[in-house]
Structure formats: structure tokens, C-alpha cells
Amino acid sequence: MKWITRERPKIDRIACPWLISRFVDKEAEFIYVPYNEVLIKAKELDATAFDIPEVEFTHYNEQCTFDYIIKKYKIDDPAVLIIAGIVRGADTDRHDIAKESAGLWAISAGLSHNITDDYKLLETGMILYDSLYSWATHLYKQNHLQNSPFESLLHEVYNKFLSDKKSKSKKTPAWVKDLKNMIQDQIDTQFTFDLKQISNDLELNPSYVSREFSKYFEDLNGYANKNWRKS
């Protein structure tokens, strides 16, 4: 089946071909022509026009053409529904709909600026949306810092604590034991080394925490900053 729309695509006119080719018609052919030729060429080529006014496959109220295709063909893939919000926000300049919409707009606008051949742009866009689909399917709830140097740093600090604890004969202060538990609880989450927050949680004076901490570890802030610079 042939699909036709106006030239110089950015958001919807790249996202829709991806959606159609992946979930509606794997053999679909897409054609880009000047705006004033879309309906004429659609009749000549027996093609379905999309993402222009006064055709079936277009915007309705606050929803874009991508949304209509999902509704028309009853696509219920959870990842596609996530992408739909991102596409809608990017295509309608409503970046409040999804936090990723601004990024999609920036990348799409940049690609359109750099690639003047619409069909090469579509080819690149297919890769972009395949990647977005993989993210929405497998990585949607994973943040950037997960499995990052932050996590390794926490493991390193905790292991250092265990090692130092064995080598020191003097009694370990109660707050250090509490700190050990805090670190252990935070091993699998994002953690910022905030001396003030640590002190509040332990109900100890920050100066005391800083001074005493150095007896069991390196200086906490210095240690964190050193490792952050490495990342």
C-alpha cells in the first residue's frame, strides 16, 4: 500500500511511517511531495494521504496523526502507547505531555536540518524510532545513573568500611554502624553524598560526622568528588 504526505518531514511524518511499517503494513511505501501536490498525487498513485488537513489520517482535536493510526488499527502495544505521548508532545509543541518530547523534537529538527533528502531522512528516522521503541519496551523505568559509577562507588565505600572495621580494634561508634546500614540500603538506588543530609539522618553535628568519618574512611566529599571526576 502506498502512503503519501507533504515533504520535509520532522515528527509525525516520520513517526507515522515507522508505526505503519512496523504494525500495519510491512510492505508499505511512503512518498513525500510538495504540500499542494499531495491530494493530486494521491489520486494518480492510488495512495493514502496522511498528516494533512481534510483527509482521514490527520490530527483530531489535540491528538496527532500517530494517535489516529493507533486508534484506527487498534494497536495496543504498551511501548507504542508510551511513544504516542512523546510524539504528540513533540508534534504539537506540548512538551508537558511527556518529558521526552522536547528531546524528540530537538533530535528530529536537527536531523531534518542535516539531511535534505526526505527518503534518507526517513531511513534514519526508522532507526531513531526503533531505538525509542526498544527504550520504551525494555528501559522505560531505568534512569541514567542506574548501574553507573555511583553504584560502584557505593560498593567500594561499603567494602572499605568492612575492611577497615576488621583492621580496627577500637569500638566502632554507633553512628558509623547506622551509616553502614544507610549505605547498604542505598546500594541499588541513586545516592548523593550530602553531608548535611547524612548528619540530619543520624542526628549528629555535621562537623562531628566529618571529623569522625575520616577515621574510618577517606574524607567523604573528597572521596566522592574524586570518583565523580573519573566518570
Rank of each mutant, 00 (worst) to 15 (best):
N61D: 14
P149T: 12
N181S: 12
V24W: 04
G103F: 00
S152Q: 15
T92Q: 06
C16Y: 00
T58F: 09
R211W: 08
W3I: 04
E37F: 09
F66S: 10
V209H: 03
N159K: 00
I4W: 02
R88H: 06
K120N: 12
R22G: 01
L195Q: 08
G89L: 04
Y73S: 15
C16R: 00
E218V: 01
K160S: 11
G89D: 00
P9M: 03
C64V: 13
E7G: 04
A174T: 05
D96W: 12
E151W: 01
T116I: 13
E37K: 10
E212Q: 15
N147D: 12
D77R: 13
A90M: 04
N61E: 14
K26V: 01
L122F: 12
K170P: 07
K230F: 14
F30P: 05
P78F: 11
D25Q: 04
Q186L: 00
S214K: 13
G222D: 07
T48K: 01
F213W: 01
K26R: 06
Y158E: 02
S108A: 05
T172F: 01
V33D: 01
A15G: 05
A47E: 15
N36L: 08
S167P: 04
P9L: 01
E100I: 05
I198L: 14
K180M: 01
W175G: 07
Q186Y: 02
P53T: 08
S134M: 15
I14H: 08
C16M: 05
R94W: 04
E218D: 12
L39M: 13
A28L: 01
I14P: 07
E156Q: 13
G110E: 10
Q190A: 06
A136I: 00
E37D: 13
D96N: 10
N147S: 05
D194H: 01
D67V: 06
I107C: 03
E7S: 08
Y208Q: 15
Q184I: 09
N159W: 00
D93N: 04
Y158A: 00
V157N: 04
N221I: 11
R211K: 11
L145H: 11
H144I: 14
K74H: 04
S199L: 02
F30I: 03
T192I: 06
Y223F: 05
K41A: 13
P17Y: 09
L132S: 09
Y216V: 07
K166H: 08
K71H: 08
P206I: 11
I198M: 11
D76S: 07
V24D: 01
L104Q: 10
S199H: 15
